[in-house]
Write a protein that binds this DNA or RNA. Structure first.
Length: 571
DNA sequence: GCCGTTTTCGGCCCGACTGTTTTCAGTCG
């Protein structure tokens, strides 16, 4: 874990503990600082050494001191004290739905409950219902929350959840009482993982929309339902929230339910400063409660003196400040992408023939695809040696002769070996159109070694891009340690690109690192890494990462026409 | 705990739903 991630982790924990103590303002302060440091480009240690910790927004005297202590000693006495001041299982209990700070303290003082197991025992023996403010129903809810906690997957991959979202949207649009359907939440911000779904409908008859919603196929549980909102569980463990608002408030509701929470708090604070009140029904003037915006998101941002902020940017990473100055990036659009720069075929471990790829890609409206099968040393993936690669190149050339307005590029995903060299010679690399260089093994050789391997690959004159540059697998494997600043520097120097690998469980580079690459003037290539036909559809996921990383059309190589792309890679 | 184009002290976003209460606290998003 990088120093930034470690510091962020500590600050997050302090923030969470303050929340349990019911001290919401310090809690927020720590959580904001944690988030800032997590998405900080610079190494926190070097910021500290320059004496500039308090330059980071949200970091004041106390938090700076905590960071300093941690960097110097590896510990944090403030965190220790907080931990000791709370029941030991408080954090665990906090994870239960419906259990908050007050309940945790009550459970501790009156029932000596300090863990989920103990809580379960207390609830089963009927002790919880005797607490003041509790009853049989809340006791039953506690048991349900425990069951959910044990059974639920915590977050879903964006790529898995989007199709489900489309289905629900379609279902809700067939409701007579519904005038408009959209969705918000982290899915609309295209965050790499999504905890639950937020469906928004415009309707004059909220109750009817809610009734329709809870009658959706595959609903296994209705957690709450009112006249304007409802929460259900679909299938075994997907939580879906519905909100119904009148049409004239649709924009305000969409803005509000899209989040992020931090973005919204900042926006509402700004609204208050300017003499307004912002809620899910609209933007209101404080002095006479007159509604001044709300039908669209655009009017809300505009009235607050801001440029429109695209959902993917709403993470409080400086977008509101930029929108104030009118300096938001003109984000690359989903339709700007003309090709896919990393696809596998049946020649290695993919299961699609070259002609199927060409056909599938054209159906998606693409103009080119780079065929980048694995190279020799990846035996398990039937990696190509020089002889088979030459053969594949001929097959591609032959196919291309019969194609119009579309082209397969001759490429490879060449393996970066432990010494930073390749398992194919320059003799053959020089004859290819597109070379992705990736690390597939030896992830644990340390920051310096990994960085050197990547930089050595970047210095090969035939390399076009670095594939999945950090090697992480979302919710499964941490990124390998690598000094991305150095890598970006070398890449900028050698005019080598960095890939956004668009597989749902990779999305590597991630959003924050994309922004770092862009700030180093490094171009980005997007590749689906598809091994099956359906996976070509993941290309927009790659674009979403680029957008979340503030990238513009000019930053993304896939937006080039094929001729321009050739000029770019023949450096 | 942080922050300042009202403020260096006193604020810090705002509303819906539930389960327990007889008017509201707790939780969530």
């Amino acid at each position: 874990m990088s120093a930034n991630a470690e510091v962020a982790r500590i600050l997050y924990e302090i923030g969470e503990l303050y929340a349990i103590k019911g001290e919401s303002f310090p809690s927020r302060a720590y959580l904001i600082a944690a988030q800032r440091i997590e998405s900080l480009q610079d190494d926190i240690r070097s910021v500290y050494e320059k004496g500039e910790l308090q330059v980071i927004p949200g970091v004041g005297k106390s938090i700076a001191a905590a960071i300093e202590e941690f960097l110097e000693s590896g510990g944090c006495s403030h965190l220790q004290k907080l931990r000791e001041s709370l029941p030991s299982g408080a954090q665990e209990l906090m994870a239960l739905e419906g259990i908050g700070p007050k309940t945790i303290m009550k459970l501790f003082y009156e029932l000596k409950v300090t863990s989920i197991d103990q809580l379960e025992k207390a609830a089963r023996s009927g002790k919880v219902r005797k607490l003041k403010g509790f009853g049989p129903i809340s006791e039953k809810n506690v048991l349900q929350a425990i069951e959910d906690y044990r059974g639920f997957q915590k977050r879903f991959l964006l790529g898995q959840i989007l199709p489900v979202l489309r289905e629900i949207e379609e279902y809700m649009s067939s409701c007579g009482a519904v005038l408009r359907v959209d969705f918000g939440g982290s899915a609309r911000r295209m965050k790499e993982t999504v905890g639950d779904l937020d469906i928004l409908v415009a309707s004059e008859k909220g109750e009817e929309a809610v009734e329709y919603f809870i009658s959706m196929p595959r609903v296994t549980r209705v957690i709450s339902k009112g006249s304007t909102r409802s929460t259900i569980i679909v299938g075994s463990n997907l939580q879906v929230d519905l909100r119904a608002v009148p049409p004239e408030s649709f924009g305000a509701a969409l803005q509000y339910f899209t989040g992020s929470k931090e973005h919204n708090i900042k926006l509402r604070t700004l609204a208050v400063k300017l003499g307004y009140k912002l809620n899910e029904y609209g933007l209101f003037r404080r002095k006479d409660d007159k509604k001044v915006a709300g039908e669209t998101e655009e009017t809300i941002y505009q009235t607050l003196g801001l440029e429109y902020v695209e959902p993917e940017l709403r993470e409080d990473r400086g977008e509101i400040e930029a929108a104030m100055k009118g300096s938001l990036p003109n984000l690359v659009k989903y339709g700007d992408v003309r090709g896919d720069l990393h696809v596998h075929s049946s020649w290695s471990d993919g299961n699609i023939e070259l002609d199927e790829i060409a056909e599938g890609a054209q159906q998606l409206g693409l103009e080119y695809i780079a065929i980048c099968d694995h190279s020799r040393s990846l035996g398990i993936a039937r990696g190509l040696d020089e002889k088979r690669l030459r053969k594949q190149m001929k097959a591609i050339e032959k196919l291309n002769r019969n194609l119009e307005g579309f082209m397969l590029l001759k490429g490879i995903e060449v393996n970066i070996m432990a010494d930073g060299g390749f398992d194919l010679s320059n003799d053959i690399l020089k004859d290819l159109d597109f070379v992705v260089a990736s690390i597939h093994s030896g992830f644990k050789s340390g920051m310096k070694k990994m960085t050197d391997r990547l930089i050595s690959a970047i210095h090969n004159e035939y390399v076009s891009t670095i594939g999945h540059p950090t090697g992480r697998l979302i919710q499964r494997r941490q990124p390998y340690p690598v000094d991305l600043k150095k890598v970006f520097g070398a890449a900028a120097d050698q005019r080598v690109m960095m890939e956004i690998n668009a597989l749902p469980n990779r999305l590597d580079l991630n959003d924050v690192n994309c922004k770092g690459a862009m700030e180093h003037d490094v171009s980005i290539s997007i590749g689906t890494d598809a091994h099956a036909l359906g996976q070509l559809r993941y290309l927009p996921l790659g674009v979403s990462v680029a957008r979340r990383g503030w990238l513009q059309t000019k930053d993304v190589a896939n937006t080039l026409r094929i001729r321009e792309l050739f000029r770019k890679v023949s450096r």
